[in-house]
């Protein structure tokens, strides 16, 4: 149990209308209110015309509640939910380019395999590893690869949804979300 007053990373998922400027409005809110974003991703949802947005942010409980309330105030936001850590399936995708000459290559590949990561590109002295995993696992892989020499890394930022069998407001089909309007 974390203390309510302590900042921690949390995951919010919002369903938003797929209209021009919506990402700008959400980003502007975070900037204006001085929230500390770890990642913000947006992409298509299962419903045409609606996008789903995942934001990972570091804050305490009260700030999180206010952030959710502030998101609800945006006209383009259809639904918002903070996903409890236990109820969330979360994936970040990373590509990591590592130094790996013929002496190191086997060790690097072995490290990747330990993380169920894949080698997607190989050159004589480098290779590129792809991993889709929760944030922390990617951080761990990166730490393991660091001694070999990480040349570059790119990450998508987390996408998340409530686990199967768990209902989240942001999951509601729009027909249900819009009822009672």
């Amino acid at each position: 149990m974390t203390a309510p007053g302590k900042p921690r990373l949390r995951t919010l998922v919002a369903t938003v209308e797929d209209v021009p400027g919506v990402l700008n409005r959400v980003a502007s809110l975070f900037r204006r209110r001085n929230y500390n974003i770890a990642s913000l991703t947006v992409g298509a949802s299962e419903v045409p015309g609606l996008s789903r947005l995942t934001v990972v942010v570091s804050c305490d409980d009260a700030t999180a509640a206010r952030l959710e309330a502030n998101l609800w105030k945006l006209v383009d936001v259809v639904a918002v939910d903070e996903l409890a850590a236990a109820d969330v399936v979360e994936r970040d995708l990373a590509l990591i380019k590592v130094r790996a000459d013929h002496l190191q290559r086997a060790a690097v590949v072995q490290a990747a395999e330990l993380f169920a990561a894949r080698v997607v590109d190989v050159a004589p002295t480098e290779l590129t590893i792809e991993i889709a995993a929760p944030r922390q696992r990617i951080d761990d892989l990166r730490a393991v690869l660091e001694p070999f020499g990480v040349i570059a890394m790119v990450r998508t930022g987390a996408v998340a949804m409530a686990r199967a069998g768990v209902t989240a407001a942001a999951d509601l089909p729009p027909s249900r979300a819009a009822s009672g309007a």
């Binding site: 609800w72 936001v77 407001a169 979300a177 819009a178 009822s179 009672g180 309007a181």
Partner: peptide
């Protein structure tokens, strides 16, 4: 253009 969306 868009009816108001329900809020919690």
């Amino acid at each position: 253009a868009r009816p108001p969306r329900p809020r919690p």
